[in-house]
Simulated scan of single mutants.
Amino acid sequence: MPRTSAEREVQSSDLAVRTQTGFIYVALAIILTLASGPSMVILLCVLAGISSGELFYMLRSDAKMPNAVFGIVAAVLYPVVVWLWGMEGAMALTLVFLFALLCWYVFSLEVRVSDVGISLFGALYCGMMLSSFIPVRYALGGFWGGLLVVLIFAGVWLNDAMAYLVGSRFGRHKMAPKISPKKSWEGFAAGLFASVVVWCFMTLVPGVTMGIPKAILFGILCGLAGVLGDLAESRIKRNTGVKDSGNIMPGHGGLLDRNDSMFAVAVVSAVLLLGTGCLG
């Protein structure tokens, strides 16, 4: 059914707000990532802390009782310990966090095992997964390491943007109607193409030893990881009955809404680039 003029005006206004908010977020992320390793760590700490807080808020709407204080603190600490001590630090933090949750469970009789589980999940999901960008940046170091991470960001952003633009304009075939009714296969294909294009540009970064065929494969895999992350958060929102994880980003919702794809892509890109010897 054709849209009315009022509906087109509302859609245009929503797109303008979404674009302005997205521009500010993208600009800050690029500046902090390129500036230095420590400034990128600060960026990741902020994203992890706010996103985990939004996640715990949504879970409370579903009659869950996560330990938000423990979870947010752990999520914020993950980028710091990975920066200082690598994956050994992340494992140590996970063990300390787990023992803290066990103490909370033992001495708080109203706490359920499921509450312990979602508290741990929130910190790992929003904190440890996001920290995977740190070893990628430091594998190259300096400006080029920061640029590589920015390009990974760009792959996620353009995937989301193209999926939204093409899906809203040409989307006819629903991809996951029971989880995210607005997503279409047309938008999915456009987003995947954008991800591949960005990954092909990564082959031009000094220190990256990755040919075009491998870049195409990695772009597809990271594009799929981004869609999985997006659908995972959509599933959480549908289960909890929450439309947006927050309202910190007008036109987008919360930071978790904006970065749900980023968590999975952080891990997959780190495994692909570091595990196959593409950086050095």
Rank of each mutant, 00 (worst) to 15 (best):
M1R: 06
P2A: 08
R3S: 15
V10L: 15
T19E: 06
L34F: 09
A35L: 13
A35M: 15
G37S: 14
P38W: 13
M40G: 10
C45R: 02
S51T: 04
L55D: 00
F56S: 04
F56Y: 11
Y57H: 09
S61F: 07
D62T: 14
N67R: 09
N67H: 10
V69H: 06
P79D: 06
M91K: 14
L93I: 06
V96W: 12
A100L: 07
A100E: 07
Y105H: 15
S108P: 14
S108V: 13
S119R: 14
F121Y: 08
G122L: 08
M129F: 12
A139R: 00
A139S: 05
W144M: 11
G145E: 06
G146C: 14
L147C: 12
V150G: 05
L151Y: 04
D160Q: 11
V166P: 09
R169T: 12
R169H: 13
P177E: 11
K178L: 13
S180T: 11
W185S: 06
A189G: 11
A190F: 11
A190K: 10
F193E: 05
V198F: 00
T203G: 03
L204T: 12
T209V: 10
G211A: 02
K214F: 04
L217Y: 05
I220R: 04
C222W: 00
C222E: 00
G223N: 04
A225F: 02
E233T: 05
K237H: 10
V242H: 02
G246E: 01
N247M: 10
L256A: 01
R258L: 02
R258T: 00
N259G: 01
N259P: 01
D260C: 05
V267I: 11
G275T: 06
T276A: 08
C278V: 00
G280F: 02
